[in-house]
Design a protein around this nucleic acid. Sequence first.
DNA 1: TATGTTAGTGGCATAATGCCACTAAATCAA
DNA 2: TTGATTTAGTGGCATTATGCCACTAACATA
Lengths: 254, 254
Amino acid sequence: MDFDAGSHRSIVKEDGAPMRAAPLVTVDVGIFTLHEGFLKVLLVKRAMAPEKGKWALPGGIVDTACDASLESTAKRKLRAKTGVQAPWLEQVGTVGNAHRDPRGWSLTVMYFALLPYVALDAAAPASSLQAGEGLSPVEAVSWVVIEEALKTPLAFDHDELLVQALERIRSKVLYTMMPAFMIDSPFTLSVLQRAYEIIMGRPVEKKAFRRRLENAGVLIETGEMVSEGPGRPAMTYRIKPGVQGFNFSRQLAP
Amino acid sequence: MDFDAGSHRSIVKEDGAPMRAAPLVTVDVGIFTLHEGFLKVLLVKRAMAPEKGKWALPGGIVDTACDASLESTAKRKLRAKTGVQAPWLEQVGTVGNAHRDPRGWSLTVMYFALLPYVALDAAAPASSLQAGEGLSPVEAVSWVVIEEALKTPLAFDHDELLVQALERIRSKVLYTMMPAFMIDSPFTLSVLQRAYEIIMGRPVEKKAFRRRLENAGVLIETGEMVSEGPGRPAMTYRIKPGVQGFNFSRQLAP
DNA sequence: TATGTTAGTGGCATAATGCCACTAAATCAA
DNA sequence: TTGATTTAGTGGCATTATGCCACTAACATA
């Protein structure tokens, strides 16, 4: 069952201030991309208390008035910071306890999004730096190389949330097409391979990589070749529709 | 960030009834076991509105006063219905939207638990049939064969939640030791194999199965043999500690 | 003692990946 | 023009975990 009839109560303290029996509910989104050879995550610098001035994952309260679902909340946060939609949005998990927020019991639903790199200045709408429709104002928005983000002390328990999201990504990269959603389309197989390598943190064997993609049939040849600098020109490809749900039968070497 | 300062507001409607800005938060638990050759899930019959009289997954509101975390809420629900702890408890995901509960925006964090069969009459404490510490009274508690549960119309969106949990289990059974947590210990390899087969819904090859376990080194030989009826006596085994997190390098044949 | 039943193993086949050397087609610098 | 360098792409064998199947082992029962 969901809850007892009438069990949701608004307790009011003696001084008249409302006290919550239900926890605060927020959505946080780890937004990841590949840029200049690095895996980067989008961080915002909080402009308001609590944790004012600290770097944090983008996120905020679920607005029951304007969000139809948790996923639409996540999409709203994403669009507010990047100005674009993400081709991959996935729920990581939910963390809820009495101590993660100084003001009491709180709960956050963690998502991660993958997208090709977009410059923030150009793409981010004004709303990302100002308070708007349920949006929190922030001092700054920035793509941060993942290793640095992991070293930075983040607001609340966002360090742990970031680690959780990263673990999920590093695990799924071994048997999915994830990296294809973080680069511009169309792309060459070499670019895609490098995307895998950046996320995995180690080299991938060229032949095995290409054969795997070929047998899976997850790409469409565009027929267009590209040639950058010296070396043989390369064929370009696009992702087949529906590939987000595709899983290879085995993982890349651990 | 988590939320804006002061953004949690208790809106009061004109008639004085409190209206929530924050969603209702619940935890639901799919409790699974193996019994008499079937995969079964524990269902409860709701004794109170809403959805009174309907079958549902055990669960209920998060009690911020007594639960330290979401997981402890899940454990409390589990213990209330079965009287025992589960050796496997895993979060499946969170569903939150405006329409899953007739009374407004609500959110549930779904867990699943795996445990060896326990008879409900004997093991369930009185609290499972009566209202207690934040526990909801139910008309009945029952182990239901999974195929039947899937055919039964459940309260709220519990049909979908059950499907989600089941998909997770059917997927992870292919590369984890999950079934070992649903049978009594120690066990024979034949019993364990049958546990896999029940969940997977198809036969598993004996030699491949045993070799896989042997190479993984996830079991401890007890040294004790058991003999039931005719046939050669079988060695018995226990699960090595820490095996819950173990993943085989490949999946069983899809 | 023969027969049926369940436990457990030997050994080859299969499939996806790892590995490495090779060819192919471009740029660049004498 | 030619050779060196660079990147793209392939051929083919090795490795590894699993699938498959026939075989042996040890018990009960008639």
